Amino acid sequence: MFTGIIETPGIVTRLEKDQTNLNITIQSPLAQELKVDQSLAHNGVCLTVVSLAEDTYTVTAIEETLQRSNLGDLKEGSAVNLERAMTLGARLDGHIVQGHVDQVGVCTEVEDLEGSWKFHFRYDMHPSRITIEKGSITVDGVSLTVVDSGPGTFSVAIIPYTYEHTRFREYEVGSRVNLEFDMIGKYVARLMQGYTTP
């Protein structure tokens, strides 16, 4: 379980294919505090640490994860948003994030508002994947509040701190991002389907 509050970016230092899996080695100041079998969110994807070195660690993404997320787009030198799993008793500063990406969305517009930024995204519509104005959405692991919501589209406003300390500073039109829709909203949508489906 995560909160969507990014701790630090990491840098991909090595990518190694292993049959249909991808082993991803990341350099991060968090590496010295990790242990094998620990879970971290990488661009919002929960992955398990499989090995450690002095300032790097390695995780494995299986084919299902690569197909559902943007991790297959990573290259050596790519930045990755990192968050360790929350601890019991900690403040929930963002919202409840599972680290299970629902789908990849695409950035369609970036507005520079002279002090903040507004990013617009589109995604493939699905009955259980909805956004609402002032609701929560996770973009590459970042917990955000929806500004505008439409069929298969939404926008979010980004403050300078988030812009500077996450991958948002790299996004441009066409950038692919991992989306995790609000967990409570997904359950409500699924329950409503049960009532409306013959």
Rank of each mutant, 00 (worst) to 15 (best):
T3V: 10
T8Y: 00
T8F: 00
G10V: 04
I11M: 12
L15E: 00
K17M: 07
Q27E: 09
S28G: 14
Q32N: 13
D37H: 06
D37M: 10
Q38I: 12
H42R: 05
N43D: 02
N43P: 06
T56D: 04
T58Y: 10
I62M: 15
E63S: 13
Q67W: 11
L74W: 02
L74S: 03
K75H: 09
S78V: 01
A79W: 09
L82C: 05
E83G: 05
R84D: 01
G89Q: 01
A90Y: 01
L92N: 01
H100S: 04
G105F: 14
G105A: 15
G105N: 05
C107W: 11
T108L: 10
E111A: 15
L113W: 13
S116P: 10
S116V: 08
R122A: 14
Y123Q: 04
M125L: 15
H126Y: 08
I130A: 05
T138N: 14
T138A: 15
D140W: 05
V142D: 03
S143H: 06
V147K: 07
S149A: 14
I158H: 07
I158Y: 06
Y163P: 12
R169M: 12
R176P: 05
L179E: 02
K186M: 04
R190N: 09
M192A: 05
M192D: 00
Y195C: 13
